[in-house]
Amino acid sequence: MQKRVHYNSSYLPYLLVAPQIIITLVFFIWPAMQALYQSFLLEDAFGLSSEFVWFDNFVELYDNPRYLDSFVRTAFFSFAVAGLSMGVALFFAALADRVVKGAQGYRTLLIIPYAVAPVLAGTLWLFLFNPTLGIMTYFLDMVGINWNHKLDSSQAMGLVILAAAWKQISYNFLFFVAAMHSIPKSLIEAAAIDGAGPAHRFRTIIFPLISPTTFFLLVVNIIYAFFDTFGIIHAVTAGGPGNSTEILVYKVFNDGFVGLDLGGSAAQSVILMFIVIGLTVVQFKYIERKVEY
């Protein structure tokens, strides 16, 4: 028995994969090529004239301390988001793993945040922490903390991290729960008989066995923090105060569509593209490493 399907006609297989290829070409490859091309151009703000400048846009970015700042900021932001959302999700999953009754219900409730659009999530948190109206601001004031993320840059960064992490917890939670479920129960029981308490079991058995999932989620979360948090940042801080929450993807938008430096913006998006390609390669390379039970 051959596992692969073999077609007698030569055009049918191409026809079957055509929709996917067309979608990829039109929505991914073409814009990517366009961005690549544009990153070599110096264009005036109205698009009336353009000049081919080779790598000038990239060199300019390399020399621009504001861009490098944004790079460091993005790294901090994405690791904070990934760490926070994965940490909380792991904690929830470890608890949910022990629940038998009504587990489905809890899980469904925990998944809801994932269905909330980024801008809405951002707005939600913005209302909670609004310096004049926010309920959280009110509570914080009661314990003597003066909250104003419109003025305080570290508070602003904290808020976008919180909002971005919150949205991603559900996704991470689902994967962690699934990973924990796939660990045979007898392994946990064997460890219990061997004398390991719940915390020790988690540390020495469960956590090492879900490490492929953890790694996968780390990459996914970093990609998420790099790219999908645009809506949250736009709604909550719009990159401010100052540039304190301007991560790379927000800077692409700011420079390109607000500052109208299309070439420089394209160059930035090309760099981001290579980062995501790199992350994806790493992920594909290691995702095959699965644990055998």
Binding site: P184, S186, L187, E189, A190, A191, I193, I205, P208, L209, V291, E292, Y293
Partner: peptide
């Protein structure tokens, strides 16, 4: 004070 052998052996794979 017991020790158990499981059907699927339940060895720690890592």
């Amino acid at each position: 004070g017991i020790a158990m052998v499981f059907q699927n052996y339940a060895l720690y794979p890592h």
